[in-house]
Simulated scan of single mutants.
Amino acid sequence: MLNALGFKVRKYHMNEGHSSLLALELLKQNSLDPNKVKELCIFTTHTPVEAGHDKFDYGLVGDLIQDKNDVEILRKYGGQNYFDTSIFAMNLSNYINGVTKRHSQISSALYPGYKIHAITNGVHSYTWTSPYFRKLYDRYLPDWENEPELLIRVGEIPDTELWEAHWNAKRNLIDEVNKKTGIGMDYDTLTIGFSRRMTSYKRPTLILSDLEMLRNINKRGKIQLIFAGKAHPNDEAGKQIIRDIYKVMKTLRDEIKIAFLENYNMDLAAKMVSGVDVWLNTPNCPYEASGTSGMKAAHNGVVNLSVLDGWWIEGWIEDVTGWSIGPKPDEKISIEETRLAELKDLYYKLYYIVVPMYYEQQDEWFKLINNSIGMIASYFNSHRMMRYYVTEAYL
């Protein structure tokens, strides 16, 4: 289609193995010369899990691709025993990358022998910045939407105006929650948000593991929790997670306000990442290749509290840009010890650091808001990401 329209494509960027049959067509258009195809192709992997890389039995491949020559080409570059779409793409690309530094290391271990670079993901700043912060940035940091690195100058914005913008975004979210659920959340309470796909490795219910600890935290300073997300229709464990959240909501109904927002979409996500006070992320390591919701939150001065996985390893400076949960990625401890350490650390930091700072040390909280914008949002954006792709992969 592109050829028929007269496009002259200099580079083809394959994202995940799903797109790798592109390289088969390019081989056929270039006299089966792999070097010519490599010059045209870039491959980005987005999953750190071996099961996330598509592999197919050659019997099935033969049934679907009738041309025996094509099947032999797939076998030559995609693996002898089964067709691995990622290997096929990597064998026919001159540049391969993961989506964070940590992810590139994990991918290199999954596929030894390939040089896998790292280009850390970013989010589109203007899209994920709330109208209240857009207006503020427009006034103090003109042209920030085209040069998000200007957000590093956030110190020029008075703290009172940053807080007002956050307050308006928070009020917008709380009004939405109360309209949809009738739970009666308020604007003054420390609000913790978790919204993403509801699936087991994301561990949405980690914070609900010990309800007595949660009650103690709530006595130290009132908290309220907002969850949002969808489970895949075939993910029974994911659907059970949502049921578990509703069960805890019922148990804690008279003590801690908890809401689950249904029909999760981009509009609701935008309200969530701008309206909560703390953005919670608790995936099982090392399954978060990148993650981007915390980057979106930072554009709105929301503070991250996250397991050290994906992008947060690069964005995290303890007590400066937010807080970590659990051990560092290179600590040599068992999975069971890691899980216990994460849970203990999560409750410890909420009780001793996060809640007291929010209610008693507003100046310190303002520093975190400033650092979220100036140190995270100024870097973890798609403008920076695209510059890296252009200079490292495309040119």
Rank of each mutant, 00 (worst) to 15 (best):
N81I: 06
N81G: 04
Y82W: 11
D84P: 02
T85N: 10
S86K: 03
S86Y: 00
I87R: 10
F88H: 05
F88V: 10
A89S: 14
A89P: 03
M90S: 06
N91Q: 05
L92M: 01
S93G: 11
S93Y: 10
N94T: 13
Y95W: 09
Y95F: 12
I96E: 02
I96F: 03
N97P: 05
G98D: 05
V99N: 11
T100S: 14
T100F: 08
K101F: 12
K101W: 04
K101R: 13
H103K: 00
S104P: 10
S104R: 12
Q105S: 12
I106R: 09
S107I: 12
S108R: 06
A109F: 04
Y111M: 13
Y111N: 08
P112G: 01
P112C: 02
P112Y: 04
P112H: 06
P112R: 05
G113T: 07
I119N: 11
I119P: 08
T120P: 06
N121G: 07
N121M: 07
N121T: 07
N121D: 11
G122Y: 12
G122W: 11
V123D: 05
H124E: 07
S125Y: 10
S125C: 06
Y126P: 01
T127M: 09
T127N: 11
W128C: 01
W128M: 03
W128Q: 04
T129R: 02
T129G: 04
P131E: 00
Y132I: 01
Y132S: 12
F133H: 10
F133W: 08
K135C: 08
L136A: 00
Y137M: 02
D138W: 00
R139V: 00
Y140I: 02
L141N: 01
L141D: 06
P142L: 02
P142C: 03
W144D: 01
E145F: 15
E145M: 14
N146V: 15
E147T: 15
E147I: 14
P148A: 06
P148E: 06
P148Q: 09
E149K: 15
E149V: 14
L150A: 03
I152Q: 14
I152Y: 15
G155E: 15
E156A: 13
E156D: 14
D159C: 10
D159N: 14
E161V: 08
E161Q: 13
L162P: 05
L162C: 05
L162S: 04
W163Q: 04
W163Y: 08
E164H: 02
H166N: 09
H166P: 02
W167I: 05
A169P: 06
K170V: 13
K170M: 11
L173S: 10
I174A: 07
I174Y: 08
D175I: 10
D175L: 09
V177K: 04
V177F: 02
V177M: 03
